[in-house]
Nucleic acid binder design. Structure first.
Length: 558
RNA sequence: GCGCCAGUAGCUCAGUUGGAUAGAGCAACGGACUUCUAAUCCGUAGGUCGUGGGUUCGAGUCCCGCCUGGCGCGCCA
């Protein structure tokens, strides 16, 4: 039983009945159920009476009183009361608490999953950095947030594909090839200069070295640069893939811009836009009528020299997304690319596709705070710490958790010293430590010869302290939190929830260190011990499932 | 100049889509380990939610003006 849904439908039905009794047809406002910040107000609250007051021309208090009488008989409701200016507050029964725990215990690793997706297909495109060099911290936030959005959607019942799109055509790629060729020649002892604005980084030297042992000097006099471009691209992609794997991320599809050209998709897209009269020629270039769709101005699709801009193949790529019949398309963008979104949406509409299927997630810049200095990191600048070294130094769990603590669309200051602090103060360990404590309790129980019998057989009504009730009500929130994270594509809600839940547990646990009758394991009270072990089991399941969605490990000891 | 995003405790940030007395972590100060892990817990202190109006039963949240900061405004990608 999901207690949230139960309360919601209870209030909904009661409101319907009340409205109908007044001779009205429908409830004009959606039913909202809240969890009051102040515990004195109970487990749940609804402001529905105040929302109805105007339409019904009755006082909120009167409506609240009437509705509360209609729900009072429900077996899950211990008490209902009405508070001014018209809140209805509920407290649930201990029977409801027991139901919550039995449900979690039955669901196990599946607890928290839901099916708002109904198996609909979701495409999550993220990172999509061009293969011109190693990934750095600026990419890491995008990678982690994108992957966790994908995980949330999966847990919410979507069939998810993770996709990486990269630009392997155009001048930048040519420059990359020329740069590698220069490094290759240098390795052979030939004097060769990097092209102007070439790629200076050491990593091309590291690619050139094995290249020499692989092919010797057989390409020494090659004038066509494409071999070097391809070689550098493939090597870099492999290294990007390794970086992603070290973060626990596996892409299902890798789509190349060059394929959009080779397969004729760019031409096809341009023809389509022309046929729809959404592209026009002006000053020798082809323009998209993006201003018809809310963009600031029209945009160039094909330059005067006949070369397409970035936009044309990207629209072909997005057309390709729609052709594959995905129901929702999630895109992550670096904060410095937010201005591109209206243009993309305009192009999609111009092609006749609904841009409402597109969910653009802006992932704001990261400022690195290290050695007392602040460095701004965009995906285009300031990269001197590679993603690889970041993971080596901090570990996957820390990197993932840190980027998931904050909402993606606000700027983030990454405190390197705090992230590196492996002993205390690091919020990752706070949650993981809770999990380790659960496991430790079960281990200790086994040592004392206590055999956990399962939630089904426990007398859960014995869980009656305020702390226990609070934890149970928190546990019941996981499905809502996941649902919200998936619907809003905002995974940080889950991170915050896990910290809150871990906090409630640590507090509860500490009471037991002071007073032995409040410990989980009470050897002279087997029945109570069994009930509390059920609570710990449910805590373990909930924290483990949450961490799993974040891609963070749940250690059994620390 | 125009557009987008932001401004909440000394610092970093939440704030359940408009709800009741605005929260957490860090930093500061004071406490708690013969007992299930002190990587923990408790307490104290810290606020004109940038600012001025507006909308209503009710605003940190929505609307308008202003101030401050970030980003973007190319026939670059």
């Amino acid at each position: 039983m999901d207690i949230n849904q139960h309360i919601e439908s209870l209030v909904h039905d009661a409101a319907q009945r009340y409205v109908r009794a007044l001779g009205r047809e429908e409830v004009p406002t959606p039913i909202t159920i809240e969890i009051p910040k102040n515990k004195d107000y109970g487990d749940f609250a609804t402001p529905v009476a105040m929302l109805l007051a105007r339409a019904l021309r009755k006082s909120p208090m009167e409506i609240a009183k009437a509705i509360s009488e209609l729900v009072a008989a429900d077996p899950m409701i211990a008490s209902v009361n009405v508070a001014p200016p018209g809140f209805i507050n509920f407290t649930v029964t201990s029977n409801a608490h027991g139901e919550i725990l039995r449900h979690i215990s039955n669901e196990q690793a599946h607890y928290g999953h839901c099916d708002i997706g109904h198996g609909k297909r979701a495409l999550v495109e993220f990172v999509s950095a061009n293969p011109t060099g190693p990934l750095h911290i600026g990419h890491a936030r995008n990678a982690v947030v994108g992957d966790t959005i994908a995980r949330c959607l999966q847990t919410a019942g979507y069939a998810v594909t993770r996709e990486y799109y990269f630009n392997d055509a155009g001048v930048q790629m040519k420059k990359l090839g020329e740069s590698l060729r220069a490094r290759y020649l240098q390795q052979l002892g030939v004097e060769a200069a990097l092209p102007p604005d070439g790629y200076q980084g050491e990593y091309l030297v590291e690619i050139a070295r094995p290249l020499v042992s692989e092919i010797g000097d057989s390409r020494k006099n090659e004038t066509d640069v494409s071999f070097f471009t391809n070689y550098a691209t493939e090597k870099t992609l492999r290294s990007i893939d390794e970086d992603m794997k070290s973060l626990g991320i596996a892409f299902d599809e890798w789509v190349r811009e060059s394929a959009m050209h080779h397969e004729g998709k760019v031409r096809e897209t341009l023809d389509e836009l022309k046929a729809r009269n959404k592209a026009y020629q002006h000053d020798g270039a082809w323009w998209l009528r993006s201003s018809e769709y809310g963009d600031e101005k029209d945009r160039v699709l094909v330059k005067r020299d006949g070369e397409p801009t970035y936009l044309a193949p990207d629209l072909a790529y997005h057309k390709f997304k729609y052709e594959r019949r995905y129901d929702i398309l999630v895109n992550t963008f670096g904060g410095d690319h937010h201005g591109y979104v209206p243009r993309l949406a305009a192009g999609i509409e111009a092609l006749g596709y609904p841009s409402s299927a597109l969910r653009c997630v802006i992932i704001q810049m990261v400022t690195l705070l290290k050695d007392g200095e602040r460095t701004k990191l965009s995906t285009r600048s300031g990269e001197f710490i590679t993603l690889k070294s970041m993971i080596n130094e901090l570990g996957r769990d820390v990197v993932r958790f840190f980027f998931l603590m904050r909402s993606a669309d606000s700027h983030l200051v990454f405190d390197w010293e705090l992230a590196k602090d492996t002993s205390m103060n690091n919020p990752v360990y706070y949650v993981q430590y809770a999990h380790a404590r659960f496991c430790s309790i079960f281990k200790k129980g086994a040592e004392l010869g206590i055999q956990y019998q399962g939630a089904e057989r426990a007398n859960l009504a014995l869980l009656e302290t305020a702390e226990e009730k609070e934890i149970i009500m928190l546990l019941a929130q996981l499905p809502q939190v996941i649902r919200k994270s998936a619907e809003a594509v905002e995974p940080h809600h889950l991170t915050l929830y896990l910290r809150q839940l871990a906090g409630a547990f640590h507090q509860y646990f500490t009471i037991g260190t002071k007073k032995s009758e409040y410990r989980v394991l009470v050897p002279d009270n087997q029945e109570l011990t069994q009930a509390r072990l059920a609570l710990i089991e449910c805590l373990r399941i909930t924290i483990a499932n949450g961490l799993s969605i974040l891609g963070v490990s749940a250690p059994e000891r620390m």
